[in-house]
Write a protein that binds this DNA or RNA. Structure first.
Length: 119
DNA sequence: TGCTTGACATAAT
DNA sequence: CATTATGCCAAGC
């Protein structure tokens, strides 16, 4: 049984698929949403095992610093950046993404604020 | 089976 | 915010 079929990997892929276009998420964020707290490395490992036709938007997963994590093949770095830029994600002069602006938030503060006063 | 590596995160300085 | 140290777990050898 390939590791890609592992339940943990499947949850990771499911979370990554939920990342909307033009948004990014960190490995730790994906790990937390995939019910794998503290195992951010596994997220990267799971994405590493992905195939081209997997349909998983792996390019939307970056590290906590808003940077594209360098992998063994330097070829992927500009590729991921180009894919994100094609989605509307803007990179800083230092090659970083403003997480405060592009970070995907699956739960947009569902606070029990009850009836909003003033509306 | 045990050691090393790796698409990371967090805490301390 | 950058560095350094530590935790984490699967894959490769």
């Amino acid at each position: 049984m390939p590791a890609e079929r592992s339940p943990a990997y499947q949850r990771i892929y499911a979370v990554v698929r939920r990342i909307p276009r033009g948004r990014v998420a960190t490995y730790g964020q994906v790990a937390a949403l995939a019910v794998l707290p503290g195992r951010a490395r596994q997220v990267g490992y799971a994405l590493h095992a992905l195939e081209d036709g997997s349909g998983v938007p792996w390019q939307r997963v970056i590290n906590h610093r808003g940077e594209i994590s360098p992998r063994a093949e330097p070829f992927y770095e500009p590729l991921q950046r180009a894919m994100l830029e094609a989605e509307g994600v803007v990179f800083d002069a230092r090659g970083r993404v403003d997480l405060g602006h592009y970070r995907w938030e699956p739960a947009p503060s569902p606070w029990p604020r009850s009836r909003a006063r003033t509306g």
